[in-house]
Amino acid sequence: MNAMAFVYLAAILFSIGSAAVLLRRNAIVAFMGVELMLNAANLALVAFSRLHGQLDGQIMAFFVMVVAAAEVVVGLAIIIAVFRARQTISLDEPAELKG
């Protein structure tokens, strides 16, 4: 079986993650959707690394992980700050962006 199969898998996981971002009102769950999308990308990168026989894809995936870790730290901090201020983490609540 070709490693290309994992790229298809990555596409499906990415779509599920994006749908979760659109559908879920809980900020943490939406955030997990984002994480899933990142991981799908990582999977694709690793698969490409395998297909091309080069390590750069894996390095890229590694970098993505590092950046994702930083992102998670900051994102969760933001969620906590919002929760402290509003007692909710629903994405529909802060409709102050309404024009």
């Binding site: 994992f6 395998r50 994702a68 969760l76």
Partner: peptide, 25 residues
């Protein structure tokens, strides 16, 4: 897929750190 290092890092970073952080929050 031939990335044992990444596999370990994935377990450590994601399941060990990131997802635990999610649970804490």
């Amino acid at each position: 897929l031939g990335a044992p290092f990444l596999g370990v890092v994935q377990i450590v970073v994601y399941t060990g750190a990131v997802m635990m952080l999610f649970l804490f929050v």
